[in-house]
Nucleic acid binder design. Structure first.
Lengths: 243, 243
DNA sequence: TCAAGTTGTCTATGATAATAGACAACTTGA
DNA sequence: TCAAGTTGTCTATTATCATAGACAACTTGA
């Protein structure tokens, strides 16, 4: 690989450079909209070839973190997704409104039983059978958040299989005859990403995440689904609607 | 890279496999001393070529986490027993402190006469009658070391029979009224196990051993016993206390 | 003793990573 | 307009990664 990487770590050099630059952006050393150092300069600071830097920058550009302008320089994109918190929140609409293409993907679906907290949120009894759905949601190709959703297994039998094909919670609910739903409660905290979510979100370890606990109810107020979503803090900002 | 890794993550496949196996060990899915699945089986579970698995295992073996045995399998290395070298060294205490069960076992006891070196160590005259005790010490079921101990036959008559029943040098000395003792000298070398010790230590021929020559003395400094112990290098590490 | 299963080693091939150099195309500020 | 500095693209070379197949060497249990 290179003189520095005599250990042959199994991690490509361009990836180390890309991670370094991304960290620089995340930590604010390179502000949004600002010009990055030239490719030559980056190559010198990391002691790698310019082409390796270009590979790293290409990976970042692919994810929309930077944007190269020929003859001028490479700039940090300022583009946290604005995520309004309303009672009627649809991931696909929010991302689509930003000119990006929303995608959902099932990670895992399994049986579960209601803990006391989950039972309370869903209006069920402790120990009631649940379907647990782990999914990741992306804008363009960048993963935005991973969610763990719980639904009553009795009211939504085979919910995992349905979600696997429709890839959208809205469509899943539709499939079970739920025409409309609204957000009943939202609780936001922050934390540090764990290894599992880091891989799913394509995040470096140690990066902050926004944790959102939410419950959706039908128009009559009956709980449908409760979720814990972990958002990559550097890719999204929540807008609270006042009034 | 591979069919799964269409994204070209910048992390080598073998590294992902190695990390996966290491996590398995850390989480106890593969217990210490246990055999890992065969290379072919690992290759199938990760959907990867066998050579890629071998690259991963080589990296883990390099770090001493696993050990491959040709024709048999690849095994999770036992955590080496940390063996602090102090003036007050008791095998049973050290092994017990590691959460393992210490055991001693007599191999052989016989009469001997003091060579010049043994006589000097024990403060006797050359040719003085000695008791020679061969024993093996184990932690759980793994043999850790074999020792040859020499004591004065005049001061410790019938020492061999006593050791056969109490199975501990500390208790043997207690039996003869020695309430306390300490390590007067310790000399460490390394070598290759011979056929006799290999059988006793359950070691393959050609494996390295740590050879420790030591003499214990009573609180007044009078020599009690001198030993030559051979430790299976792969099961123990000596800690030198600094200061 | 033998067959099945295991790790070790060899050759071979194609894809990717990293290096190097050269030049084109473009932007910016003087 | 021009020079300096920037990104984009091309060719080329070497090393590593990953796959594939074959067989040797060895262990284990029947």
């Amino acid at each position: 690989m290179s003189l520095q990487d005599t250990s042959s770590s199994g991690v490509a050099l361009w990836r180390l450079v890309a991670d370094g630059i991304e960290r620089g952006i995340a930590e604010g050393r390179f502000a949004a909209g600002e010009k990055l150092p030239g490719e030559m300069e980056i190559a010198e600071t990391y002691r790698v070839n310019r082409h390796t830097v270009r590979r790293a920058l290409a990976a970042l550009a692919e994810r929309g973190l930077v944007r190269a302008e020929r003859g001028s320089g490479t700039y940090v994109e300022e583009q946290k997704i604005a995520y309004p918190l309303r009672s009627r929140t649809r991931f696909s609409e929010i991302v689509g409104a930003g000119g990006r293409e929303p995608r959902g993907q099932l990670i895992d679906a399994s049986q579960d039983v209601a803990s006391r907290e989950l039972a309370r949120e869903l209006g069920l009894k402790t120990g009631a059978p649940l379907v647990r759905i782990e999914s990741v949601r992306l804008a363009d190709r960048a993963p935005i958040c991973v969610s763990t959703a719980w639904l009553s297994a009795e009211r939504f039998p085979g919910a995992g299989d349905v979600f696997a094909s429709v890839r959208s919670m809205t469509k899943l609910l539709e499939h079970f005859g739920v025409r409309d739903y609204r957000r009943a409660s939202t609780r936001i905290t922050a934390g540090i990403v764990d290894a599992t979510d880091a891989a799913r979100l394509d995040l470096a370890l140690g990066r902050p995440i926004l944790v959102v606990d939410s419950t959706d109810v039908d128009p009559d107020g009956r709980p449908l689904v409760t979720k814990r979503s972990r958002f990559a803090a550097e890719r999204v900002e929540f807008l609270v609607e006042n009034g």
